[in-house]
Design a protein around this nucleic acid. Structure first.
Lengths: 218, 218
DNA sequence: ATCATGATGTTATAATAAACACAAAATATA
DNA sequence: TATATTTTGTGTTTATTATAACATCATGAT
C-alpha cells in the first residue's frame, strides 16, 4: 500500500484509456475461446488496431500483467481486465421504458452473461404492464421506487422518450441506484457525483451522416 | 480508385471536433423551439459544458458563422450545422436483423424526422417475414440485395447477432450501400474507405460498470 | 551454460487537442 | 455621434494523448 498516499487526481486514469479497455477485453475473450493462451502487445495491436506501445501503456496503468520475452497470459489478462471493468460481480438493473428498445435490452443475453441482471421493466402504459419479456415482468412505473429499494437495484436504465428522462433519472436517484445508463437523447441534469453513461444513438447516426456527406457530396 | 486530389490532410477536421457537432445541433434545436434567436459561445458553453473557446474553435473549422459583439444567430447556425452533418438531405436505409433492436430503430420517429427513412427490415426468421413495424415490412434477407439496388438504399443498419454481422456487412457492400451503422458487438473487417459507424452497447455498459467499481470499490 | 532473440515496462519525444488571450469588429447606450 | 461593452475569430501557450526508443529481463536454441 505504499503507493496509495497519492491523491485520486494524480493517479486518475484518463477516460480515453478506459474506453479502450472493453475492446481489449473482447479480443482477449475471443482468444480464450480459441484456446490461445499467450499473446504479445504486437499481436494485440494487429487485432485491435491500436499501437503495441499504446496497449502496453494502457495496461501498465493498472499493473504489469505481462512478462518480458513472453508477452501476456490471455486468461490472466482477460481476468484482470474483467476485474478492472467490474465484470467480476453481478449488478442488479431495471429498465424504465418498456418499448422496443427496453425490450431489446431485456432480451439481450449478452448483458446477463457479463453480470448485469435485469430484474424488471417499468412502464406507465397499462397495455404493457403485466407482460413478460423472457421471464422479466413489466411493472407499473409507480411501483419502481419500492422495487428498487427492496431488490438492491444498482443500475437504472432509461429507455423512455426524451421528455420523461429527467424526471425518471431523479426517481432513480431518489430510489438509490448507483449508476444510470441513459438512452434518451438528452443531457440529464444530475448531481456531479452521480455516475451516468449515455448512449446517444442520434449522435452516432449523425456522425455516419457527416462522413457520408463528406465523401459523396462535398 | 480516384483518390482525392485534395491533400485531404490539410483540411481534415478531427473526429473529436466532429463528435461534438451533434450536441451543438441538439442544443440549437432546443433554442429554436423556445424561440430564442441569438446565442453567444459563452451561453452555449453553459448549456453544453464545453468551453466557449472550444465552441468558437470548433465552429470556425467550418466557417465564421458568428458576428462580433452579437454572437450567433440560432436559426442560421442550426441550419449550417444541419448541412455540415448531412441532415439537409434524406437517406434511404434498411435494417437487417428484425429483432427488438431492429424494430426499436424502425419504430423511432426521431430518425425519420432527421432524414433517415427506413424502407425495410430484413430477417431470415420465417415467423417475422411479412410482419410490419409501423408501415415498414419485414422481408426475407435473401431479397435484400435486390431491394437495396432497386430502392437507392444508402445506409445499411446491422442489428443482427454478432455471428452474422460480418457476412451481412459484406452483403451490404456488394449491394452498394454507402455507409453501415453497426450494432453488432464486433469489429467489421471491411475495405478502409467504407464508412462504418459502430454502436457498442456492451462497451458502454462496461464503462458504466468501471466507474461503479471505481467509486464503490466492490 | 551461453547467447541471441523477443517482448515488457517505462522514459523520452512528437503530435494532437484544449485553453488562453486579445485585436478587431459589431452592438448598445447615452 | 461618441464611447463603453460585447463577443467573435484566431494566434499563442499549455495540457493531454500517442508514438517511439530503449534498458532490462525471460525464453528458447544450441
Amino acid at each position: 500500500m505504499d503507493k496509495d498516499y497519492r491523491t485520486d487526481k494524480e493517479n486518475k486514469i484518463s477516460i480515453t484509456v478506459i474506453r479502450r479497455l472493453p475492446k481489449y477485453y473482447r479480443y482477449l475473450g475471443d482468444l480464450l475461446d480459441k484456446g490461445i493462451n499467450r499473446i504479445s502487445s504486437q499481436e494485440l495491436s494487429k487485432m485491435t488496431g491500436f499501437t503495441a506501445s499504446q496497449i502496453r501503456q494502457d495496461l501498465n496503468n493498472f499493473g504489469g500483467f505481462g512478462q518480458q520475452g513472453y508477452g501476456y497470459n490471455v486468461e490472466e489478462l482477460h481476468g484482470e481486465l474483467g476485474k478492472i471493468l467490474g465484470l467480476d460481480s453481478v449488478y442488479n438493473a431495471v429498465i424504465v421504458g418498456a418499448g422496443n428498445l427496453g425490450q431489446a435490452i431485456a432480451n439481450y443475453k449478452g448483458f446477463e452473461d457479463a453480470g448485469f441482471k435485469v430484474l424488471s421493466l417499468f412502464d406507465k402504459n397499462p397495455k404493457l404492464i403485466g407482460l413478460r419479456i423472457r421471464d422479466i415482468e413489466i411493472r407499473d412505473v409507480d411501483t419502481m421506487v419500492d422495487f428498487i429499494k427492496e431488490n438492491d437495484v444498482e443500475i437504472g436504465i432509461i429507455t423512455s422518450p426524451r421528455e420523461s428522462a429527467q424526471e425518471l433519472a431523479e426517481t432513480y436517484i431518489e430510489a438509490g441506484v448507483k449508476g444510470i445508463w441513459n438512452f434518451a437523447p438528452t443531457d440529464l441534469d444530475l448531481p456531479d457525483d452521480m455516475i451516468v453513461e449515455n448512449v446517444r444513438l442520434n449522435e452516432s447516426l449523425f456522425i455516419l451522416s457527416y462522413f457520408l456527406k463528406e465523401k459523396y457530396n462535398r
